[in-house]
Design a protein around this nucleic acid. Structure first.
Lengths: 217, 217
DNA sequence: TATTATTTTTAGACAAATCTAAATTTATAT
DNA sequence: ATATAAATTTAGATTTGTCTAAAAATAATA
């Protein structure tokens, strides 16, 4: 239906959209996709011809409903594959993204639906990001950032904001993985670094920078 | 490493090779890949430059060891994915090929090895074709065609020669699927059609044409 | 507001893979 | 052995996605 490249553009534009009506700029797309602005202009024209987005010269772009649908289905496939890689094939959460970037472009409705069923209809990927449904609907997750949690309240690590490989590797090393039960037991006044207790036993310290990038519920 | 298209050419040439030193003809490749001879010539030159095959004008091509390795790894990936689709996602054996044609091109050594482990190191795909190992080695399967089996000998359906969707659908409809235990109980002298008994219970008739395309052990 | 600076677009070129039509080579048949 | 047929290659064009360099539009600043 749509090419590998078209799907990647739509996904990038979707993620860059604020839904405030302000068009996504050519440069921001180019930066996000690690390509040049001239290439983006070319592709934008093509996607506009296909009614996947609205484009006015020099004004940036906004996805149409059709464009959003394609983006959401691609994100859905990406995240379902990530669950498969993590849960079934035991990939680390820092390893799943790269492979899922390829798998998300496999064309087969049947495949993704059967995979979804095989995995028990997961609602979140291994980074805690919600998986859109077949019709693009999100069950919003209402997670909060760990640096806003009050002391002595039990929470569960449910997602991350920073998805970078080094960050994910760091968290894994200090046993902060998805589903981890934890409690903030001390908030340092000076730098807002935190002392946590994991599983009611081990105590660890994390910086505010790290805490800001962890989501809990 | 190699493009989608390059892998497909190498796979097709591998399958068309007799290993008798006779080059594979341009036309046979074109026919097999449903493309034009001129396109094949272009691609052949490219693959020859990359030392994946030996090419002399008007003499056809032969894969080098390097070319065979790439072809075998692609076939390995294809067949492992077919097992996954059939065993885990419950695709019919007539449905797996098309999707595996896409999945075989995903680039990740780690992925295919972890998938192989997840599936318990299968030796054959859902059509009974052997799965090459990591180093391209085959455990040859020594199956025989059902039309050569003597009467009253218990055998197990272990593969097919004809891989077409209609043929596979037909077999499934009459309960002839991989692993089915059966016995030839009557061989018609006139047209060499067969009467079979399945699981020691149900009796069915099949034509010689069908029998020739079924492999048993 | 006039002048820079930045962003975006256009123009033209390139690489990959394909095609058609024509030319060339090899095979076949009288 | 010569003519015809079949297979293969070349030449030139096309599509998709990309790029650089230059031009045009918009934004920022003095």
């Amino acid at each position: 239906m749509y090419s590998f490249t078209e799907e990647n553009y739509l996904k990038a534009i979707y993620k860059l959209s604020d839904n405030d009506g302000n068009g996504v700029s050519t440069n921001s797309i180019a930066e996000n996709m690690e390509t040049k602005a001239a290439s983006v202009t070319d592709m934008i024209k093509k996607l506009s011809d296909k009614k996947l987005l609205k484009y006015e010269k020099y004004k940036g772009v906004n996805l149409t409903q059709k464009g959003k649908d394609v983006a959401l289905q691609t994100i859905r496939k990406h995240r379902i594959w990530e669950v498969f890689l993590h849960e079934k094939l035991k990939f680390g959460w820092e390893e799943v993204h790269e492979v899922a970037e390829q798998l998300e472009h496999i064309q087969s409705e049947l495949l993704i639906n059967k995979l979804d069923e095989f995995l028990g209809y997961p609602t979140h990927d291994p980074h805690g990001d919600p998986i859109p449904g077949e019709n693009g609907e999100f069950h919003s997750n209402a997670f909060v950032s760990l640096d806003t949690v009050e002391a002595n309240k039990k929470v569960i690590l449910s997602g991350v904001i920073n998805h970078s490989v080094p960050f994910l590797q760091h968290l894994k090393k200090i046993d902060l993985t998805l589903g981890q039960k934890l409690m903030v037991i001390e908030i340092n006044e000076y730098d807002r670094s935190l002392k946590l207790v994991l599983n009611g036993k081990i105590e660890i310290f994390i910086s505010n920078e790290v805490a800001k990038n962890i989501l809990v519920k």
